[in-house]
């Protein structure tokens, strides 16, 4: 069997014929293998959900226990027979529970990366490269202008700004799943042990992280604390920080934690005063290094700047093509 026969693109998403299942389908299907809990990969309504135990817990927290008729949790690294294929979930390093889907059948192996990064993250297991014939990679930051700085440097800039402006509060726009918890964990590593204040939309997932064994330290929901929040750090969804919600904060410095903050026009358009270049996606160097490491001869490139990465692959003598998956990249676009 050829590796390219292990996967095919259908309107519902990436179909795996030997396993009889879709990977990260965009519409409800009978059987969905899901790489991680972000809304553009994990959608409610499929009959059966197959994912890591953490992703199942996150999906249930987001969509409720009745969103899927049946759920099956497979721990990372444990192979499972599904139809004529063997499916293994391997850590992707993107957010808690995130996994690559390794599909093996007829002597061929394909790996669907989902979203991934190679930088260390205290809130999830690190990416493990898997040698394969076909590698389906994301390319959110698939341009050589994207090279993410070390997260410690960005946290240090944030803390320096907090020290320099003690009469203001720092409000960080961060996606509710993954980015928020990573920022909190990195702040803790940098020695910030004060209470961190949360927008209500972030509370549920922080609780799930805590239950799954990721310590986040003292957290509190933003209510009417007003001036008490001077000198403190607040996290909220990016959309809330440029809107009425932010008015309850004392003279906030609006910060955003995202890989897009690398481009200053983007930061300026969004009215961000302190851009923090922190991403949960692989940057250009990580993308190209990972493709090389898998040894795959065929590379399919999804959501983002496919063109540049396909060009790079072709230059390396790899067979690469863009895979037009609908509705991806929504968490980073915010």
């Amino acid at each position: 069997m050829k590796a390219t026969e292990l996967l095919e693109l259908r309107p519902q998403g990436l179909w795996c014929p030997p396993a009889g299942a879709f990977i990260d389908p965009v519409r409800p299907v009978d059987r969905a293998i899901v790489t991680h809990g972000h809304g553009d990969h994990c959608r409610p309504g499929s009959r059966a959900l197959l994912a890591t135990p953490e992703t199942v817990a996150i999906a249930e927290a987001r969509y409720g226990r009745t969103a899927f008729a049946a759920t099956q949790a497979i721990p990372a690294g444990r192979p499972m027979r599904l139809g004529d294929a063997t499916i293994t979930l391997v850590p992707a390093g993107h957010v808690l529970g995130s996994a690559q889907v390794v599909v093996e059948a007829g002597g061929a192996r394909a790996v669907v990366s989902g979203d991934y990064k190679r930088a260390a993250d205290p809130t999830c297991a690190p990416f493990e490269p898997v040698p394969c014939d076909l590698f389906v990679t994301e390319a959110t930051f698939g341009l050589p202008v994207f090279r993410h700085p070390p997260v410690q440097d960005e946290i240090a800039r944030l803390l320096a700004s907090v020290r320099a402006q003690p009469e203001r509060c720092h409000a960080i726009g961060a996606y509710a799943l993954g980015k928020a918890q990573r920022m909190i964990a990195e702040l803790r590593r940098a020695g910030w042990d004060r209470t961190i204040y949360l927008h209500g939309a972030l509370v549920g997932l922080c609780t799930v992280y805590g239950r799954l064994g990721i310590p986040l330290g003292p957290l509190e929901t933003v209510r009417g604390q007003g001036a008490e929040l001077k000198g403190e750090i607040v996290l909220g969804p990016p959309s809330a920080l440029n809107d009425r919600w932010a008015r309850r904060l004392p003279d906030p410095v609006i910060c955003a934690a995202s890989g897009w903050m690398r481009v200053r026009q983007r930061a300026k358009q969004r009215g961000v005063e302190l851009p923090l270049v922190v991403s949960d996606h692989a940057d250009w160097d990580e993308l190209t290094a990972t493709i090389t490491e898998t040894g795959a001869q065929t590379v399919w490139v999804t959501h983002g700047a496919e063109e540049a990465l396909c060009l790079w692959c072709a230059d390396q003598g790899l067979d690469a093509r863009p895979l037009a998956l609908a509705g991806r990249g929504e968490e980073e676009a915010m």
């Binding site: 341009l143 202008v145 690398r262 481009v263 026009q265 700047a305 540049a308 060009l311």
Partner: peptide, 26 residues
Amino acid sequence: RVDPRLFALSHDFVGDLAETVALIWP
């Protein structure tokens, strides 16, 4: 220093020449 095709794609995305060069320089 940088593949002109990758440079052109990056410049299209970033918009500003100075910023593209500053970011893309290996």
